[in-house]
Design a protein around this nucleic acid. Structure first.
Length: 471
RNA sequence: CGGGAUGUAGCGCAGCUUGGCAGCGCGCCACGUUCGGGACGUGGAGGCCCCGGGUUCAAAUCCCGGCAUCCCGACCA
């Protein structure tokens, strides 16, 4: 069904993520066109949960969902110089339509700043229309040189937010709010993936932005993954698309815009942050199925006990599922759910029912315990929160253990072999340090102020650079 | 575009050096015995050996020419 590379972009890093794990976990396959992907039902269920959680946070931040076209006239891209330069190499361009060559080619959107800018200009008249907070769920295409399933596919699904504001301060504050309250909150609280929030260096910045902020996560092999970004676009796009408003004193003003997005890349991040040799480990708040009740045998009233248990779990708000496939061997079914990373398995058989107990297995710790049948549902519900916290704590510990403070470029390269290095940005910025790191495949993941906040600029004193190898 | 490798059953691969019936593991189908952690036995289905040409009595195998894919680099959510 799928190749091993699906879940293990670097097979040697996760040696036992074999064909079996991939095929049965049913996550994704390589698509029919180079670099595209087919997302299979279980992988899509994970994405749907991500969408639901991210969308709720976006709405809490005040943005409204809308939709814009997949096709963008090529000329739109030429209105913002840096943007066209940044995206031209990876555009998919449609030259024919309806059997005829088009007068003007259209590109398949790699991101929608340009079309949305066009519409914002039409919609915004007055300062009373601001801020304008829009979000689009859709797909985009970037013809990458080296695609990698989930992490860098030619087509991917994502959410892109686009906002217009009256002032620089308002735009900057909103972009930062998205980073904290939508992205980092979701990643830490739901995905149980610890992230470093920082500022990108100018060379890593989004084409056309004046500032790019990022959430960087560490995968289990020590490499970094950019999980989501939020950009201040300044007035670059407002100028290019004439997004203006009349202020309270009757003066025409240019808007300040932002854009921000997270994608199906997060599915890859989830896998590579939490997956182990036995398959996926899905944190409870994300898990499409939080508890699976496995009916071992239908004898001795176990069938009705299992059904009742599922009802009790659902009554407590737990996403529960019954596995009553008694014609399939128990071991096989256990492994199936283990591969899928379902946080808790409750095993119910005649033996348990006779003793008034069930066996509870935790996927995260691999442990098993016996709990009384009457309190099994509430115990499982309580444990879900424990597991959520434990997974975050474990991931945080592993990341911190692989993060070293260093003083020299040599030490940074050494530390980056299996983790991150942290060192003063000043030392790199004022020397050829960054170039020497890049020669060794090590990049500046992000910049963070000494107190952990986001630096207002690259040349601020005491800024710390996070360095590492990245996917 | 530079460097390296690979195309053989649904998936993973052996066979190629030294030409001679198309193979193995997993998966799939049937029957039986099993069933509390990936069961076992017996039988079965499944092939454009990447494509085109050449050499030969005979080509998965040798030769020539294409195409595709993967890995390492440059680009990147």
């Amino acid at each position: 069904m799928a190749k091993p590379s699906v879940l293990t972009p670097q097979a040697e890093d996760f040696p036992r993520w074999n064909q079996d794990v991939v095929a049965k976990a049913e996550l994704a396959d390589n698509g029919p066109v180079r670099g595209t992907m087919v997302i299979l039902p279980y992988g899509y269920a994970l994405w749907e949960r991500m969408q639901a959680e991210v969308d709720a946070r976006i709405k809490r931040a005040g943005a409204k969902n809308c939709y814009f076209p997949l096709f963008i006239p090529e000329s739109y891209f030429h209105r913002e110089a840096e943007h066209v330069e940044g995206f031209s190499p990876e555009l998919a361009v449609v030259t024919h339509g309806g059997g005829k060559e088009l007068e003007e080619p259209v590109v398949v959107r790699p991101t929608s700043e340009t079309v949305i800018g066009e519409y914002m200009a039409k919609w915004i008249q007055s300062y009373r229309d601001l801020p304008l907070l829009w979000n689009v769920w859709g797909n985009v295409v970037r013809w990458e040189l080296r695609p990698r399933l989930f992490l860098r596919t030619s087509e991917f699904l994502w959410q892109e937010g686009h906002t217009s504001h009256a002032t620089y301060e308002d735009a900057a504050a909103y972009a930062e709010r998205i980073l904290h309250e939508v992205y980092a909150d979701f990643m830490v609280e739901v995905l149980a993936v610890p992230v470093v929030k920082g500022r990108k260096t100018s060379r890593e910045r989004f084409p056309g932005a004046i500032n790019t902020m990022t959430c960087e996560a560490m995968m289990r092999d020590g490499k970094a993954l950019q999980m989501g970004t939020s950009h201040e676009l300044g007035q670059n796009f407002a100028r290019a698309f004439e997004i203006q408003y009349l202020d309270a004193s009757g003066q025409q003003q240019l808007c300040w815009t932002t854009s921000w997005g997270v994608s199906t890349r997060m599915v890859g991040g989830l896998i590579m942050c939490h997956g182990d040799d036995a398959g996926l480990r899905v944190p409870p708040r994300l898990a499409p199925t939080q508890v699976v009740v496995i009916l071992v045998k239908a004898d001795g009233g176990a069938g009705t006990a299992a059904e009742r248990l599922v009802d009790e779990l659902e009554a407590q708000g737990v996403r529960a599922e019954l596995d009553a496939r008694v014609d399939v061997s128990f071991g096989r079914r256990s492994v199936d759910w283990e591969l899928k990373g379902v946080p808790i398995r409750l095993e119910v058989g005649p033996r348990d029912v006779a003793e008034g107990v069930v066996t509870l297995a935790r996927r995260d710790a691999g442990s098993k315990q016996t709990v009384g049948l009457p309190e099994a549902a509430s115990e499982a519900a309580r444990l879900l929160e424990t597991i959520q916290a434990d997974m975050l704590a474990t991931a945080t510990q592993e990341r911190d253990a692989r993060t070293q403070e260093v003083k020299t470029v040599e030490e940074a390269i050494d530390a980056s072999s299996d983790g991150w290095a942290v060192m003063p940005w000043e030392a790199l910025r004022t020397s050829d340090g960054e170039a020497r790191l890049r020669d060794q495949g090590v990049t500046v993941r992000c910049l963070v102020a000494a107190d952990g906040s986001l630096p207002a600029g690259e040349d601020e004193p005491d800024v710390i650079a996070y360095l590492g190898r990245a996917y």
